[in-house]
Design a protein around this nucleic acid. Structure first.
Lengths: 248, 248
DNA sequence: AGGCGCTTGTGAAGGCGTGCACAAATCGCG
DNA sequence: CGCGATTTGTGCACGCCTTCACAAGCGCCT
């Protein structure tokens, strides 16, 4: 669209503000598109149609096209999208070309697993520090990384210029950890602890609550059960064939 | 609303269909309300105002009232909501009074942690079976539960009447596991593996992709960085002070 | 060179969700 | 017994997102 921009460094444009403010809904889907594109690239595909990519990402093709059009997209009518080009573009928009440093607080059951989660490293993130309040855990080696005491957070965060923190502590300590992260200059938090965090407005928080996910499924189970028991009979589909990941 | 129903078994009403079809957005928030209510109950509160509960759940008070009104709510004007009553009502709607049986497939890094996650048991779910395809893992004892081979899924699922399955396998095997779950009669799936699952329309899938969450945060980091570098200056708040959990 | 088929990009419409603002209802107190 | 303070429940308007449907554009084949 707009002027011709093919071939310029991704995002580096002439008069266009490098940041088309994308709708939140679109942003939430970009990572899924990216994953699908990587998968396609591995199978050797050079281009994809919106139909094909949409199917791979589990969304409507019209939605996909509109999403991509928001970022001043690179598609060719009659052909489709250049896979490699689109990958670069989306990675640029998501800021994944920076190989972002992440720290993780709380090396309990869940934190331990997250520290070793291969999916982070392979998708643009480096877990550079682990913290815990429990002295017994400090010093423990997890995947080649030593657990440090939470009191060192401030220093380490500055040294490694960490902007993203992950909270995997019990609910009771989550808020104080969040405060510590904010004080250490972290401006994005991924919170696995149940409960609401209060943070300054310039800090972004995303929350993942595993029990909540199950409870939502439980609702649908309950609903399906009460419907099949009814005269009407057969289960009429939730309309949720989309299975998006999250919407903040 | 409707007629007076105070005192009847939750959900058991006269002419009212026990299932007011709630908006998805509301359903996604109910678990958060429930958590906040439990917390309030522990502190000994008998009633809450919509304002108070809304604050505890991190949402707007008008939104909360509308949400509760959808389930034919139990509030008293001038007073607030009866905490215990509301807990019962929400638990009934979410189907949590059934103590639902859940099975978990894939006892790797993440699956291991999920199997031991205390938050499940304390919020209405029992993990009753663990499966893995790796013979070396079969027989391993995790939290008093023995890992079984995936081939036994069908039999065990029937015996324990499992309706909810959790997938924590590597991406490559997720689809075949999903197929096996569906064949075993599971109608709700919580998927931690990256990628899109295709399932019959009567099966609900919710997806949690940890890397996607980080990528969304990364986008906001990128955005904040490119804004502070600009003439306008100060970070203008994402407007995301809500921090909901998920919206499918 | 011209035409045909295919695919993108987008205008417009409809639906869903949010938030405001207020009327209705309840309690407590004088 | 009536009045005021308080809080719920909701009608309404607005904005975001989705979806349809189609014109514009591109490549290929003849």
């Amino acid at each position: 669209m707009s002027q011709q921009r093919h071939g310029s460094t991704p995002g580096e444009a002439d008069g266009v503000p490098a940041f088309p403010d994308l709708p939140e809904a679109t942003i939430a889907r970009l990572p899924e598109y990216l994953r699908a594109l990587h998968h396609l690239a591995e199978t050797g595909a050079e281009t994809v149609s919106s139909e094909g990519l949409a199917a791979a990402a589990g969304v409507n093709s019209a939605k996909l096209r509109k999403d991509l059009s928001h970022l001043g997209s690179y598609g060719t009518r009659g052909v489709g999208y250049d896979v490699a080009l689109l990958v670069d573009q989306i990675e640029y928009i998501l800021g994944l070309d920076k190989n972002r440093a992440v720290c993780l607080v709380g090396v309990g059951n869940l934190g331990h697993a997250l520290a070793g989660y291969a999916g982070f490293a392979s998708r643009g993130f480096r877990v550079v520090a682990l913290f815990d309040a429990d002295p017994k855990k400090v010093g423990e080696d997890i995947n080649g990384l030593a657990v440090q005491h939470i009191d060192d957070l401030q220093r380490v965060a500055a040294e490694e210029s960490i902007a993203i923190g992950v909270i995997a502590t019990p609910p009771g300590t989550a808020q104080s950890v969040a405060d510590a992260l904010v004080a250490a200059g972290v401006t994005s938090i991924l919170n696995f602890a149940p409960g609401v965090l209060s943070v300054p407005s310039n800090v972004d928080v995303r929350k993942v609550d595993l029990a909540i996910e199950l409870q939502i499924l439980s609702f649908h189970e309950h609903r399906k059960a009460s419907l099949t028991a009814l005269p009407g009979g057969r289960v009429p589909a939730t309309g949720n064939s989309d299975q998006e990941a999250v919407g903040s």
